Amino acid sequence: MSSVLLAGGGSAGHVNPMLATAHELRRRGHDVAALGTTEGLEADLVPRAGIEMHVVPRVPMPRRPSGDLLRLPKNLKSAVAAARIAIDDTGAQAVVGFGGFVSTPAYLAARKAGIPIVIHEANARPGLANKLGVRWAARVGATLPGTPLKGAVVTGMPLMPPVQALAEQLAAVNQAPTVRAQARDALGWPADAPVLVVTGGSQGAASLNAATVGAVDDLTAAGVYVWHITGKGKSEVPEAAKATLPPERAAMYRVDEYCHDMAEVYSAATAIVCRSGAGTVAEVTAMQLPAVFVPFPHGNGEQALNAVPAVDAGAGEIVTDADLTPAVLVARAQALVLGTDAESEGARMRRAAAEFATVDGAARVADLVEEVL
C-alpha cells in the first residue's frame, strides 16, 4: 500500500476532517502521517488518534500590512523546508490538505517533490491556502455544492468514526428511538425526555451562553431538558443559574465546559442550538437533529454560508447572533423539541436532515486520494 501525508491544523474545522480521512485511509491499509504545528489543536488530537505528526512552523498568512507580512518569505521558506523533510521521511506518495496554516507549505513542498496533491475544502467560502493549492491539485473535494474551487466534486464532510457510526445507526430502520432512549437513560434522564443541546463549540459562544442562562428557568418549567456545553472556562454563570432552580428542575439542566465524545451528546439530543462551522453543520444533519444555527458574526461570513444549504433543504433555521435572546431561544426550543406528531416542525426538520446529510464523506475523500496514488 501507499504512504500519504495529510495536512490540516489550527482549528477543529481543519483537524477533524483530516483525522477522519486518515482513519479511513489507514483502514484501507495505507500508511498515514500528519503535518501540524505545536500551537494548534492538532498538537493534542493527532497524537491522541495514534497518528505520527511532523511539525512545521506556523506561518500566518496576513490579509493586511503587518510585521507578519514582512517576515512571511523567511517563515514560509522554513515551513516548506520542514514539510519537504516530512515528505522525504515518510516516503509520501501524495499530500492531502484540508486548509489552514499547515496546508500552504505542504502544497508547495509537494509541488517541489513532484507528488500529487488532493484538497478538501470544508467551507462554502474557501480559505487562502486552498485557493493557492487548487492551482496544482490533482483532485479537489468540497463539503458543499457550489464551492468556488476549480474542479471540485462534492464529497461531503469526512466524519470522525464514532460520529459516522452513530449516523449509520440512526439511519437504520427503527434504531433511532432505541439509541436516543439509551443515551438519555445513561444521563439519568427519562428515555423520552425532550432534550435541547446548546453548544458554541470548544471555545464557547457568549451569546449562546447568555441566552441559555436567561432561558433555562422557562425551558425546564416547560419540561425541556437542557444540555449546555459552555466552552472551556465559561461554566461559572451557568452553574450559578442551575443553583437557583428547584432541585427537580436543576436535575434537568446539565452543564459541561467541553465534551470529548460528541457522539454521546448527539445521541441524547432532540434538537440543537449551535454555531454553523462546516463540521458542525455536517455532523448535526448526519445526526438528524433539528437545528437552530447561530452563525459566528465576525470573520468573512463563512458560517452563515455554511448553514444556507441545510436551511434551504428544511433541516434547520438561522437566527442571527444579535437576535438570539432568551425569549427567542425558549420559543424555538419548544417548537422543535416538544412537538410529538409527524407533522411537527421538529419532525419535518429531522426528515429533511436525514435526506440532506452525507455520511460517507471520509470514504469519498479517500477515493479521491486512491485515484491519484
Rank of each mutant, 00 (worst) to 15 (best):
G156D: 08
R71G: 10
G301A: 11
G214W: 12
G279M: 12
A304Q: 13
L368T: 13
A205S: 15
I318C: 02
L170R: 15
A322D: 15
G301R: 10
L108Q: 10
E302S: 08
L35A: 07
A263T: 10
L41W: 10
F293D: 02
K242G: 07
E345G: 08
T358L: 14
Y266P: 06
V56D: 00
A354I: 04
T104W: 07
D256K: 08
R351M: 01
T244A: 12
A221Q: 14
G301H: 10
V134Y: 04
A43C: 12
R48G: 11
Y253T: 13
T147L: 02
W227L: 14
V372C: 03
L25P: 01
D367C: 05
S103I: 00
P105I: 04
V46Q: 04
A137S: 12
D31E: 14
V273N: 03
K74W: 09
L72I: 09
E168S: 12
R348A: 15
L368I: 12
L305E: 12
E317K: 11
R48H: 08
Y253P: 03
R249F: 02
V337K: 03
Y225P: 01
K131H: 05
A243L: 07
R125Y: 05
G99D: 00
A205K: 03
S267M: 08
E371Q: 15
A172Q: 11
H228S: 07
V281N: 02
Q288P: 03
A181G: 13
Y258V: 08
G279E: 02
V96T: 08
A34S: 09
D89T: 14
A33V: 07
T270P: 12
S78A: 15
E121D: 08
V337S: 03
T147D: 06
A352E: 03
G200L: 07
V281L: 14
V46M: 09
